[in-house]
Simulated scan of single mutants.
Amino acid sequence: MKWTVYLSGEIHTDWRQRIIQGATEHGLDIEFTSAVTEHEASDAAGDVLGKDENAFWRDHKSSKVNSIRTKNLIQKCDIAIIRFGDKYKQWNAAFDAGCCAALGKPYITLHADDIIHPLKEVDAAAMAWAQTPEQVVELLKYTING
């Protein structure tokens, strides 16, 4: 069975590539999906509907356009990996975690231990909390291969 793993969250480090590389090295049959990770493209997703000088309405339109992709990919995934980085607050990742929880989709959080407290509810609904991409690969290996 080919698994579909949705990669959500922080876009400023190489965690996605490390998980994909590790899964490939272990021969795991996984299709990885993700939101658009190019920051400018994501921010401009709604611009096709007309440019807006007000930042709120520009973000609002782009968020709705981006959600077409993310909602579908979350609904189709077998498991999600949700990464919270240390540089920015990833509210979108917290929202993705909530969607997974509401849909009964299993997810693994990936973050450092210094943000355990603000993520306590998100982690409580997760199937696991990992601190490194390599731990995520080991969890995927076990989940897929037993």
Rank of each mutant, 00 (worst) to 15 (best):
H39M: 09
G85V: 02
A45L: 05
I30D: 09
L73T: 11
S42A: 08
D52R: 14
A97Y: 02
D96T: 03
I30C: 10
F56Y: 10
H60A: 15
E38V: 07
E53P: 11
D52G: 08
H39S: 08
C99K: 09
K51V: 06
G50F: 02
F56A: 08
Q90R: 12
A45H: 00
K51L: 10
A93P: 06
N54W: 06
Q75A: 15
G98N: 04
V65A: 10
A55Y: 14
S63G: 13
I74K: 11
N66C: 14
A94Q: 05
I74P: 12
I68G: 11
L73E: 14
I81P: 06
K51R: 13
C77K: 07
E31Q: 08
S34D: 02
L73N: 14
D47G: 09
T70R: 06
I81N: 07
D78G: 11
W91L: 12
D47F: 04
T37G: 04
A80G: 05
H39L: 11
W91M: 10
V48L: 13
D43W: 14
E25T: 08
K51M: 08
N72V: 12
N92W: 03
K71P: 09
V36A: 01
E31A: 09
V65L: 10
G85W: 07
G98K: 03
D96G: 06
T70H: 06
A55I: 14
T37V: 04
K87F: 00
S67V: 06
Y88W: 14
Q90S: 13
E40N: 03
A44I: 00
H39D: 07
S62R: 03
D78H: 09
G46Y: 02
T70D: 15
I82R: 03
L73C: 08
I30L: 10
E25W: 03
K51D: 13
N54F: 12
F32E: 04
Y88L: 14
S42M: 02
N54L: 15
W57E: 13
A44N: 01
I82V: 11
K89A: 09
V36S: 04
N72K: 15
G50V: 03
D96M: 05
W91P: 03
K64G: 11
D43I: 12
A97Q: 02
G50E: 05
K61M: 09
N92Q: 03
A35M: 03
L49C: 03
A94N: 01
G98V: 06
E40A: 01
A97P: 01
I68C: 12
I68L: 15
A35L: 00
G85E: 04
N72E: 14
E40P: 00
A44D: 04
K89V: 06
D78T: 08
D29M: 04
K87A: 07
F84C: 05
Y88R: 14
L49K: 02
D59P: 04
R69T: 15
I68N: 12
G98S: 07
E31S: 11
I81A: 07
D52W: 04
R58D: 05
R58A: 05
V65H: 09
R69K: 15
I79Q: 04
R83N: 12
A55Q: 13
T33W: 01
A45E: 02
T37H: 03
I74G: 07
D59Q: 15
